[in-house]
Nucleic acid binder design. Sequence first.
DNA 1: TCAAAAGTGTTATCCTTACACCCATGT
DNA 2: ACATGGGTGTAAGGATAACACTTTTGA
Lengths: 325, 325
Amino acid sequence: MSEIVIGLSAVVVAVRKSEAVVLTVRPHDALTHETSALAGLPFGPFDPDGHRTFELGLRAFVTQQTRFELGYVEQLYTFGDKGRDAPRADVGAGAARVISVGYLALTPQAVQALGPDTVWTPMRKFFPWEDWRRGRPSLIDEVIAPPLLRWARPPERLARARLLFALDGAPWNEERVLERYELLYEAGLAPEADRDRERERGGRPAEPSQYAPGLGEPMLSDHRRILATALGRLRGKLKYRPVVFELTPPEFTLSQLQRTVEAIAGVTLHKQNFRRSLERTDLVEGLGRLHAETGGRPAELFRFRRELVRSGRAPGLALPLLREG
Amino acid sequence: MSEIVIGLSAVVVAVRKSEAVVLTVRPHDALTHETSALAGLPFGPFDPDGHRTFELGLRAFVTQQTRFELGYVEQLYTFGDKGRDAPRADVGAGAARVISVGYLALTPQAVQALGPDTVWTPMRKFFPWEDWRRGRPSLIDEVIAPPLLRWARPPERLARARLLFALDGAPWNEERVLERYELLYEAGLAPEADRDRERERGGRPAEPSQYAPGLGEPMLSDHRRILATALGRLRGKLKYRPVVFELTPPEFTLSQLQRTVEAIAGVTLHKQNFRRSLERTDLVEGLGRLHAETGGRPAELFRFRRELVRSGRAPGLALPLLREG
DNA sequence: TCAAAAGTGTTATCCTTACACCCATGT
DNA sequence: ACATGGGTGTAAGGATAACACTTTTGA
């Protein structure tokens, strides 16, 4: 039986200037000393002797690798498919099967002392089709749809493609990030798919460095899949747990809060209805103080009533869409 | 570095005569040939060479171990805490750290050819406090609250206990199954806690065979924790995905459907409001045929419109509570 | 005819959606 | 004064929660 290695991966998300960003690293090869062309997530092996739980292991190596201290953390999913680039690491004599446990981490501060090859990368780089705040992204119809529909001749596939990418009038569902990525992967439109096929055939294990613009930048290993899982989960969770407040500073204006939600969900919200539903939940409390730095009328500052979480009432936020026009 | 072994565990849930049941096994010791006093979940090691994915591995060993074929399957969580009885398995020379990947499986048929030590066990055995269909279970106040409140002197703990077990007027939240189990574990009211402490101290690794009635039967290893995770997740998912229909036969009456939901959620629902919200979703379609076998007026048979899932509209069911009286 | 189970009507209230308009500040 | 962002009123329609009552069968 092959040896098994557990890898931990962290999707660390923040919002910076109305944009969702994720912490990425560019590992360098131990032999060639070259830095990888592709970005990856912070990841490392789980050391069963050094750490009592996954979460402790994760916190330790993320801090060591990126000089960043994690706050809110939740487990996402455990990936173990052979082929889907669960690469065989070289461990001692033989090859080992790598299982990766993905974690989602949220932080209010996207600026902090980071290591040399650690950067915050806009989510848009990896999933350019996921941001509908300025209307339907034209690259869906221009770049994605043509090759996707060529692949999607069988009616089964066609229905899926239409549904997931909101083709001919189907409604956009912002939560299905993973399904969309998997569809592109299956259709061969994610460069990672070629690479994994290559590896399966025993070919060179090189990471792809060429990729079609508009289809998103590929990542190392199965990291883009983990990232898609994270974004989808986060978008869903916004609606039933007060997780946005892990992404905001302690004091914020309602517009800042709305822009944070919009950056994550990738949709534009109706201002007043957003506020009304916020009011109903009582999640937030006005501080009576104003925030002047915006140019227009100063806005009132609010804080998250964190004490509610302990008392059991911890719902999410409604996402009342602003229909375009 | 210790070796790592991946274990897969399956929580297979069905509803039988208005009762949630779970597939359990009583493994026997290879040396003594004795059957374990405690029930466990179907579990087995993941063989990285034999199986391309966890799910395939899971299906294979569950069928082999219980002669049962899994249908609907989803990954739950990966447990890896040392101490929380992630037991060290004896593998070759040294001791290995066991990581268990828990899965939830649903099936409409609780009766099927099973292996000799494989039985369907009512959920109530393990979590007697989770069934509120006949009102607030008296054992919460009589059996659980007294020792729990003795432990919960510090205000932090007290607030948690009140919240989770709906003490002095707090509302019951049926989804927080795991948190309730963890609270009992921390309070030393789950026999598994003593056992794990014992093991940490290097004591005998025996499973507890004595336990207080009313606090639920303990299970092998960390299986009760996995089971609690599964039940909580399933209760939550009922509300936003049409998973109940994985637990019903292809044709059913609305009362049968309601009783199935109630068995899982552990609460009683308001008949008409339940039906009205079902109607709105269009999830279900009347067949015009009647089902006579109940004694009273025959009920119309319905089927789940499974085609909706493919077309994207796949919401869950509302759970309009019936207030007691 | 009565028990058992199925199935329906109706209302008050609350929430959501969709309108459009006023307010306070800096330049 | 006007641009920029902050903040509010209100009404229609739909959803929910809470009432209690009628219908159809088997025994």
